[in-house]
Computed example of a mutant assay.
Amino acid sequence: MQPPPVTASVRVRRAEVSDLDDLVALEESSFVQDRLSRAQYRKHLDSESALVLVASANHRRFLGTAVVFFRKGTTVARLYSIATTPHAQGKGVGSALIHASENAARGRGCRSLRLEVRKDNAVAIRLYERLGYVRIGEYANYYADGTGAFRFEKLL
């Protein structure tokens, strides 16, 4: 059965322990390699240096997640991971998660948000560029399968 369409009322909030099963399931369905484990998600949920966000609609319908890392002594935050469920892709969920990540980074005094993206992920690259991210570099053989990454940054 096809899930109902995503509505415009996407809500982004900090993830809770009760979201753990949904977080792990989305991670496993979204990424073949370079996945966050259940234990890593559990650690990040309680960490001062990480923020796990979830997007939902219609009171708990899980649509996506973003993980942001913060380091003491720097004003640069890092969008470490972002994923949306297949039926939510192209419906503004990724944009909502990125905006919430930017707001969280600003709230912690960060001046920029950086990220890495697979060189072959044209959809994500277009999204980041549309949202004002600028390519600042690249890494060869960044991912486990040998694919390179582009580095992007947005000044907040």
Rank of each mutant, 00 (worst) to 15 (best):
A88I: 07
L115Y: 00
G107F: 08
N121V: 05
I125Y: 04
E116H: 07
L127I: 14
R108I: 10
E116N: 07
V117D: 07
I125V: 10
Y80L: 10
A77K: 06
G109T: 00
R118D: 01
A104P: 10
A124T: 07
N103S: 08
V117Y: 07
A124Q: 06
I82Y: 12
R126H: 15
S112P: 02
T84M: 11
Y80A: 07
G92N: 00
Y128W: 15
I125H: 03
I82P: 09
S95I: 04
L115M: 03
I125M: 07
S81P: 07
G90K: 07
A124E: 09
V123H: 14
L127S: 11
V123I: 14
L79T: 10
A105Y: 00
H87T: 04
S101D: 05
T85V: 12
G94V: 11
Q89E: 14
D120Q: 06
R111H: 02
A77F: 06
L97Y: 13
G90S: 06
R114C: 02
S81Q: 15
L127A: 09
C110Q: 04
R114M: 06
S101P: 05
E102S: 08
V123W: 10
H99Y: 11
S81D: 15
S95M: 07
R106N: 03
A104N: 10
N121L: 04
I125G: 01
V123Q: 12
L115Q: 01
A122W: 12
A88C: 04
K119Q: 12
S101I: 10
V93Y: 05
A100S: 15
N103F: 08
D120T: 13
L127N: 13
R118I: 01
T84Y: 08
H99W: 14
R106M: 08
A124P: 09
R118Q: 01
S81K: 15
S95E: 15
I125T: 03
A104M: 12
N121H: 05
E116M: 05
R118V: 02
A100Q: 15
R78P: 03
E102C: 12
K119V: 14
A124W: 11
G107V: 02
H99I: 15
L97N: 08
G92F: 03
G90Q: 07
R111S: 04
L97S: 09
R78V: 15
I82L: 13
A105W: 04
D120G: 01
A105I: 02
G107Y: 09
